[in-house]
Deep mutational scan, measured.
Amino acid sequence: MDVFMKGLSKAKEGVVAAAEKTKQGVAEAAGKTKEGVLYVGSKTKEGVVHGVATVAEKTKEQVTNVGGAVVTGVTAVAQKTVEGAGSIAAATGFVKKDQLGKNEEGAPQEGILEDMPVDPDNEAYEMPSEEGYQDYEPEA
């Protein structure tokens, strides 16, 4: 019985440690998101679009440190934060509304985080759909 109880105690310690790591990862992701939003706020009209992409990228980098179902929630929060940063930029006159959601080359930025393969159960990952990809044929 002692062996059984000791095993359960060790398992509990492992769960607590994993929860603490997840909590730490979420806190880091939130900190990076805040950094990115402050970065966007300090940019001029020309830099705002690039700044919004930076927020998304920093958040995406930190999301990889967070495991399990938390990833889905962090990704949703990050996307809403990026959308909010863009709205703030438009409201303050840093950028025109028609410039939001495009990178410096004018290509749409939507789907940055949505296409990231995420499995809350950590069982399997699927690649994003290939609808947006084109076949590449090298020139002879």
Rank of each mutant, 00 (worst) to 15 (best):
E126H: 04
K58H: 08
L38C: 12
A17H: 11
M1I: 15
Q109E: 02
A91D: 04
A140L: 11
P120N: 05
V37A: 05
T72D: 04
K10I: 12
E126T: 09
P117A: 11
P120H: 10
M127V: 13
K58C: 07
A53H: 07
A56W: 10
A85I: 10
P117F: 06
A17N: 05
V118E: 13
Q24L: 07
Q24K: 15
V49Y: 05
A56G: 01
V3H: 12
V52Y: 13
E20H: 10
T92R: 09
E131P: 11
K23T: 11
V66F: 12
G101V: 07
M127G: 14
I88H: 03
V55P: 00
T59G: 07
D119Q: 13
T33G: 02
P128C: 07
Y133S: 02
A91N: 04
V48L: 08
K58S: 04
S9K: 03
K60S: 12
K102S: 15
A107T: 09
K23I: 15
L113H: 12
E131I: 04
E35C: 04
N65M: 13
V70N: 02
S87L: 11
T64I: 09
K21T: 03
T75N: 04
A11P: 00
A76G: 07
N65P: 04
G73E: 07
Q134M: 11
H50M: 13
V3C: 04
Q79K: 12
E46L: 15
F4W: 05
E57G: 07
N65K: 11
V3Q: 14
V40Q: 00
N122R: 03
E13F: 06
K32W: 05
K6P: 02
G68T: 10
V118S: 10
S9D: 04
G73C: 03
A19N: 00
P120W: 07
L8A: 01
A30G: 01
E35I: 09
K96T: 12
E104M: 04
V71N: 04
V66A: 06
A27G: 07
A17V: 03
D115C: 08
M1G: 15
A91T: 08
V71G: 01
E105V: 13
N65D: 06
K102C: 15
E123C: 14
I112V: 06
T33V: 15
E126P: 07
A29H: 07
M116I: 09
F94T: 10
Q109K: 05
A140Y: 12
D2H: 01
E114D: 03
V66Q: 02
V48M: 12
E83N: 06
L38T: 06
M116R: 15
E83M: 02
T22Q: 00
K102Q: 15
T54K: 12
K97E: 08
K80V: 11
E57S: 09
V49F: 12
T75E: 01
P128D: 02
G36I: 15
G47V: 14
G73D: 02
Y39K: 07
G31I: 14
E139D: 10
K60Y: 15
K43S: 03
T64G: 08
E131N: 10
T33N: 00
E61F: 10
A85T: 07
G47W: 15
A107W: 08
E35G: 06
G41Y: 15
G36T: 04
G31P: 00
A17M: 06
I112M: 13
A85M: 08
E126Q: 07
K80T: 08
P108W: 11
L38P: 00
E105G: 11
K12P: 00
E104H: 14
E35S: 04
A30H: 04
M5S: 05
G68R: 15
N122L: 10
K97N: 13
E46M: 13
E130Q: 11
P120M: 02
H50T: 06
L113G: 06
L100A: 03
E114K: 05
K97G: 13
M127A: 12
E28A: 06
D98T: 09
L38Y: 09
A140C: 08
G68Q: 01
A11Q: 00
Y133L: 07
Q109Y: 06
D98R: 08
K80P: 02
P120C: 06
E61P: 03
K32D: 00
G14A: 04
T64M: 14
T64A: 10
V118C: 06
V74I: 01
E46F: 11
I88L: 08
E20F: 13
E20N: 03
A69D: 05
I88F: 03
V55L: 12
V66N: 01
Q109T: 12
V52N: 00
Q62P: 03
V15G: 00
G36A: 13
L100N: 13
T64L: 15
A124W: 07
A30W: 15
G106I: 09
V49A: 06
F94Y: 12
A124M: 12
Q24C: 07
P120K: 08
K10G: 01
N103C: 05
D135A: 06
K12Q: 02
E20M: 11
P108R: 11
Y125A: 15
G132L: 12
A107Q: 04
K10R: 14
Y136C: 12
V37N: 00
A76D: 03
G68V: 12
D135H: 09
N65V: 10
V82Q: 01
G7W: 05
A19H: 01
V77K: 01
V74N: 02
K12R: 14
I112T: 09
E130D: 07
G67P: 06
H50R: 04
V55E: 00
E131W: 11
T72F: 13
V71M: 04
S9Y: 14
A78V: 12
S129T: 10
V77T: 03
T81A: 03
T54N: 12
T64P: 08
V118P: 05
A107V: 04
P108V: 11
V26Q: 00
G101R: 06
K45W: 14
V118R: 03
L113N: 04
K12F: 07
V16Y: 15
D2N: 03
P138K: 02
N65E: 09
F4R: 00
V95I: 12
V40G: 02
L100Q: 03
I88A: 09
E35T: 09
Q79P: 03
F94S: 02
G132A: 14
G14N: 02
G68S: 12
G47E: 03
G101D: 08
E114L: 09
V48A: 04
E61M: 09
E126S: 13
V55Y: 14
G111N: 06
K21I: 12
G51E: 01
V26R: 00
T54A: 04
V70D: 01
Y125V: 07
H50E: 11
A90D: 04
V82K: 08
F94W: 10
D135Q: 05
V55I: 10
S129H: 07
Y133F: 12
E61Q: 10
V37K: 00
N122S: 11
E126A: 06
A140S: 05
V74R: 00
V26G: 00
K10W: 15
E130R: 03
Q24G: 02
K102E: 05
G41P: 00
V74Y: 10
I112R: 07
N103A: 05
E110L: 09
G84S: 08
P138I: 08
K21N: 02
G25C: 07
A140R: 12
V49K: 07
V63W: 13
K80F: 14
A56V: 14
L113E: 10
E13S: 04
A29Y: 11
E57P: 02
T72N: 12
Y125C: 02
D119P: 13
K45Q: 03
A30C: 11
V52F: 02
E13P: 00
N122Y: 05
A85P: 01
E126K: 13
G36C: 11
Y133G: 10
V40T: 02
V40F: 01
S9F: 06
A27K: 05
T81H: 03
E104P: 09
S42K: 06
E130L: 06
G14H: 06
A78I: 04
G41L: 15
V77E: 01
K97L: 05
G41E: 01
Y125M: 01
E105Q: 04
K60P: 01
A27E: 14
G7M: 10
A17W: 14
K58W: 15
K97W: 04
I112P: 02
E104D: 10
E105T: 13
S87C: 04
A29S: 01
G106M: 09
T54H: 05
E28P: 01
E61I: 08
F4A: 00
K97R: 11
Q24M: 02
T59I: 14
